[in-house]
Computed example of a mutant assay.
Amino acid sequence: MSHPLDRPVWSAFTGRQSHLALRDGAALRVHPDFGLFAATADDASESLEALGRLVRAHGGEVGLVERFDPPPVPGTTVVKSALCWQMVAEALAAPKPVDFQIQPLTDADAPEMLALAALTAPGPFFSRTHELGEFVGVKVDGQLAAMAGERLRPEGFTEVSGVCAHPDHRGKGYAARLMLHVAHKIVQRGETPFLHSYADNTGAIALYEALGFRFRCEQVLTVLAAA
């Protein structure tokens, strides 16, 4: 029996987040307002053709996150392919007291969250990505300085994502502390935190390891667009 994190996109959007998926037969893609993720039930030609139709019907790019390079998807072209590390929290570091306030972010903060993500590129972030899970942030003089939140939610697991800090506020420990806050909240719900990082981002991986995350497996991110 496969592990739910082996195919995290399929696991999440045929499970707890299925209401966010656009379907065509054995293929799905997340509504473009929420993200670019897509997946198929298998590598059958009918499934791949269905995914191609979804890409063409709704435009934009889609991202597959799988253990191996996917077979060609009819009617699409590969825009990007990158090796990623999937990491799972085994024993989270204990959060230390801080001299700043961690506060929940709401729909009212959405424009600032989108702007911060556009500036810092923590990963794909769209107008309603913040609705995929709980997000928290640090504000300085009323402006959003850093944030972190949740994204994919396969059964029993929740992904920590959207972690970023404004360039003017880096080096203050905001991002790491927000990550720990989000991860500990996930653990308190009885779930296991996990995340994805580009395999060559050694600095980020070192931070994640210091926080208690450990390598689980390699994943391949493949970004497709209509040909």
Results as ranks from 00 to 15, higher is better:
99 D>K: 11
51 L>N: 00
107 D>G: 08
56 R>I: 06
96 K>S: 08
77 T>E: 15
78 V>I: 12
102 I>M: 05
78 V>L: 15
76 T>F: 00
95 P>W: 01
66 E>N: 03
60 G>Q: 11
61 E>L: 10
92 L>V: 07
62 V>R: 09
72 P>G: 03
77 T>P: 05
60 G>L: 08
69 D>R: 14
109 D>R: 14
83 L>F: 07
66 E>L: 12
89 A>M: 04
51 L>G: 00
86 Q>P: 00
76 T>A: 06
97 P>A: 08
91 A>E: 15
87 M>R: 04
94 A>C: 12
72 P>Y: 01
67 R>N: 05
78 V>S: 12
96 K>D: 13
72 P>E: 00
92 L>Y: 00
71 P>E: 01
103 Q>N: 12
64 L>G: 05
89 A>G: 12
92 L>G: 14
97 P>M: 07
49 E>H: 13
73 V>Y: 01
62 V>W: 13
104 P>H: 08
94 A>Y: 10
65 V>E: 11
102 I>R: 04
111 P>E: 03
53 R>G: 06
71 P>Q: 01
75 G>N: 06
73 V>N: 02
89 A>C: 07
79 V>F: 05
103 Q>R: 12
104 P>K: 08
84 C>R: 15
61 E>P: 02
98 V>A: 09
53 R>M: 03
107 D>M: 12
85 W>C: 06
80 K>A: 10
102 I>C: 09
102 I>K: 05
65 V>F: 10
74 P>L: 01
49 E>V: 10
99 D>H: 06
108 A>T: 08
92 L>Q: 12
68 F>Y: 15
83 L>C: 07
51 L>F: 00
52 G>Y: 00
78 V>G: 06
79 V>N: 07
56 R>T: 13
61 E>F: 11
63 G>Y: 13
75 G>A: 07
100 F>N: 09
111 P>V: 08
104 P>D: 09
104 P>S: 14
86 Q>T: 00
96 K>H: 05
91 A>Q: 10
97 P>Q: 13
72 P>C: 00
100 F>H: 05
107 D>T: 04
100 F>C: 07
56 R>L: 11
98 V>E: 11
96 K>Y: 02
63 G>Q: 13
99 D>E: 11
68 F>H: 14
70 P>M: 09
67 R>A: 15
75 G>Y: 06
77 T>N: 08
80 K>R: 10
104 P>E: 08
66 E>C: 03
88 V>Q: 08
66 E>I: 07
71 P>H: 01
70 P>C: 10
111 P>L: 09
103 Q>T: 13
62 V>T: 12
64 L>V: 06
88 V>L: 04
72 P>F: 04
110 A>F: 09
53 R>I: 02
51 L>H: 10
58 H>M: 06
56 R>A: 08
102 I>D: 06
111 P>Q: 01
96 K>M: 06
97 P>S: 09
78 V>K: 15
74 P>G: 10
65 V>D: 09
110 A>E: 06
111 P>W: 09
100 F>V: 08
82 A>I: 09
61 E>Y: 13
88 V>W: 04
70 P>A: 15
92 L>I: 03
94 A>R: 11
92 L>H: 02
82 A>M: 14
95 P>A: 02
87 M>E: 08
85 W>Q: 13
63 G>V: 14
91 A>H: 13
58 H>I: 10
90 E>K: 12
104 P>N: 14
109 D>P: 02
